[in-house]
């Protein structure tokens, strides 16, 4: 455990030792017990492990924990604010954007990144943004609607 790192996850600072080869996703799941971030593949293809690192969506299976040293990380556990759901979480619930829930955290993290950069995306833009996230349950139909719901909600005054 030769490498000391300090990472701020969902607003809370964590320091500890990790192996050089430890992936960020394993650090989050195994070291910090944040199991909301999932592992669905070993080729950075499925997107189930998507999180935000310094404000950008990244696949946490493609980042070493040591690379996250000094970073701000947000996971699905950090999406809601003081118990009130993020609009994207609300969207997934309202539009039935999830079934088994396994891809959902990664989907929502990718979607919030999309909406940050493109607050009013077209259906094509949403589908394009999701090409790195696999869902086997929903056929993506309601995921698209969930993101549209969130886009609308985030634009309308609170």
């Amino acid at each position: 455990m030769g490498n000391m790192i300090t990472v701020t996850v969902n607003g809370k600072e964590h320091s500890g030792g990790v192996e050089g080869r430890t992936l960020l996703v394993d650090y989050l799941r195994e070291h910090l017990g944040l199991t909301g971030t999932h592992i669905g593949c070993d080729t950075s293809s499925c997107g189930a492990c998507t999180i935000h690192m310094d404000g950008k969506a990244v696949k946490s299976c493609t980042v070493l924990a040591v690379q996250a040293d000094g970073s701000e990380v947000t996971t699905v556990e950090g999406l809601a604010n003081n118990g009130s759901l993020h609009p994207i979480q609300e969207g997934f619930k309202e539009e039935h954007g999830l079934q088994c829930g396994f891809c959902t955290p990664g989907m929502m993290m990718t979607a919030t990144d999309l909406l940050k950069n493109n607050p009013n995306p077209t259906e094509d833009e949403i589908r394009h943004a999701l090409e790195g996230n696999f869902c086997r349950c929903t056929g993506y139909h309601n995921i698209v609607k969930s993101i549209q719901y969130a886009a609308k909600k985030m634009q309308s005054p609170a």
Binding site: L34, T35, G36, T37, T75, V76, E77, L79, A80, L85, Q89, F92, K93, E94, H96, L98, G101, F102, T104, P105, M108
Partner: peptide, 13 residues
């Protein structure tokens, strides 16, 4: 709306 969604969308599945 689904009862089970809450735990999944908050990462508590």
């Amino acid at each position: 709306k689904r009862v089970e969604d809450k735990r999944f969308i908050t990462g508590q599945g």
